[in-house]
Nucleic acid binder design. Structure first.
Length: 103
DNA sequence: AGGGTGACCCGCT
DNA sequence: CAGCGGGCCACCC
């Protein structure tokens, strides 16, 4: 269960968003990669948590996928996430982004 | 301080 | 290739 979403975001969460913003259009990064960018290569799970808190489009959270290329999650649904990626030129097949697009 | 949850990951079967 | 189990981490009550 997810009670109420806190408005005050921790340092960690902000770092996650900052790293996510750096992902270039047309490319994608894995949760682990983002975790590594902020200096916590093992916090991939926590990264997913942080991104789930972000409901705004200012952060390209749709450019973050799983390490195996599978889509992962998205507040507005997996379908929407895939569409966004494709609209940016990222090819998706069988609910997975091609490895070549992963940084 | 402790327990539960989640947009994860990896190894084994 | 799919399913299961155990491990990791940050955050909430």
């Amino acid at each position: 269960m997810k009670p109420n979403i806190a408005q005050t975001h921790s340092k960690f969460t902000q770092k996650v968003w900052a790293a996510t913003k750096k992902i270039p259009r047309g490319k994608v990064a894995t949760y682990t990669a983002v975790a590594a960018m902020i200096g916590n290569p093992r916090s991939s799970r926590a990264v997913g948590n942080a991104l789930s808190q972000n409901r705004d489009a200012h952060v390209p959270c749709h450019r973050v996928v799983r390490s195996d290329g599978s889509i992962g999650g998205f507040a507005r649904g997996t379908e929407a996430k895939i569409k966004l990626l494709q609209s940016e030129g990222v090819q998706v097949a069988r609910n997975k982004v091609l490895k070549k697009y992963i940084i």
